[in-house]
Design a protein around this nucleic acid. Structure first.
Lengths: 226, 226
DNA sequence: TGAATAGTGTCTTTGAGACACTATATG
DNA sequence: CATATAGTGTCTCAAAGACACTATTCA
């Protein structure tokens, strides 16, 4: 090793803040700890970075240890480095935010992680490490990003009604918006288009279904509706 | 060490992108490398994280190795983790952006770092490691942040004319703005106030000088002038 | 009084926000 | 035809943007 003159006793980890939506609640994925420190408290799914993986790969693989998942949005947010984050050793953690449809993620039950489940962000327990602060930070970033990106798509199926889209915004922002102004604004951004489908099996007028036009393009004009 | 079951061969570093302004040019601080890899090319000032320092402290101290400085703004941007960033070993780097007035930073000359100097961002050499990409990323973030924060203050003295403030915006954004609309917008944000000073020793009508009201508060409404 | 830069106001256009009724499906 | 939700248009107000002339200092 050419860098033998550097002595570093720091572990590098990734913490995942996995958001999802179910029944008008914003959820976050937590894992119950079965070891000290903070045995029996809940924590964000996290793990150490492997030598041959990027941070993003590590974040993904930390999630795969605890869940089965597909079609997940993953984005780096920030790196937390307080020297006392973990009482056992110096651990620096890079935070990833993940957005996923509830149908696309299933907790994996195992001896190592018997309890993995979603909690409503409004009813969180006290978490291990600095994870309450991490989560709060991630929630702010999510709320902010929803305004000028098309990230809402990751909480929805491929086709969705405008009411479902508005629900996503209202749940994440923890606010309500005027139906007409919301639709006006969404249409003005040209990020979704009508499909030829309608809702079925509903006992009221069925809604038109929409889809995102360019799912890869992430950033649009500022969206701010009231 | 309790975490002995984790084997990690990763070095953690911080890279600084130090911006300043001088004579209508946006500058960035570079250090000439005197060792391989990339001997004799220029690189961002960076160093390894010490075990007992946070990332921000490490960023500051990496700068102090190469410069004398005061009154510096320092903010974490992103963590780069490609496995081949440094050919010698696995090095993960957290990027910090620094903003500083030209008068508040002086290169330190030493055997270890004989060449430390500012370059105009428009005339950059090819840099070592992935530092060209890092710099481009930081510049985008700076441009974006200037719009909704009062970070421009770090390029100015305590009191400044509106023309000097507009110069900062024009130089960073690489654009020009209408004088009247710029002033209207700045005033509407209520982030600066008049002092009772005027410019002196200028051979034209002296400008009123202004100062920032709340230097700590960073985020204001969106500023977007044309 | 000429050179150099500071400083100022109005009109037009665009987008945000408030607000109430009609349309269409099912049982 | 009752219930439930989808879907739609206009007015007002605020901010963005285009645009040209006067003010003040020094040499």
């Amino acid at each position: 090793m050419v860098l033998d003159f550097i002595k570093q006793e720091i572990f590098l980890a990734v913490d995942n803040v996995v958001f999802s939506i179910y029944k008008w609640e914003l959820l976050v994925l937590l894992v119950e700890r079965i070891k000290n420190p903070s045995k029996w408290s809940w924590a964000l799914p996290w793990w150490f970075v492997e030598d041959d993986m990027t941070l993003k790969q590590s974040a993904y693989s930390a999630l795969e240890r605890k869940t089965q998942l597909k079609h997940l949005y993953l984005e780096q947010l920030y790196t937390f480095s307080a020297t006392d984050r973990d009482p056992r050793a110096r651990v620096v953690s890079t935070i990833y935010m993940a957005l996923v449809h509830r149908d696309n993620i299933k907790p994996k039950v195992s001896d190592e992680a018997p309890s993995v489940q979603f909690f409503p962000v409004k009813k969180l327990p006290k978490l291990a490490f600095d994870h309450n602060a991490v989560l709060e930070y991630a929630l702010q970033r999510l709320q902010y990003k929803l305004e000028y990106t098309n990230l809402a798509q990751y909480f929805l199926k491929d086709s969705f009604s405008l009411r479902e889209l508005q629900d996503v915004y209202e749940i994440v922002m923890n606010d309500t918006f005027d139906v007409r102004n919301f639709r006006k604004k969404i249409h003005s951004l040209h990020m979704i288009r009508e499909t030829w489908e309608l809702q079925s099996n509903v006992n009221h007028r069925p809604a038109k279904l929409y889809e995102y036009i360019d799912k890869e393009k992430k950033v649009f004009d500022v969206l701010w509706v009231s």
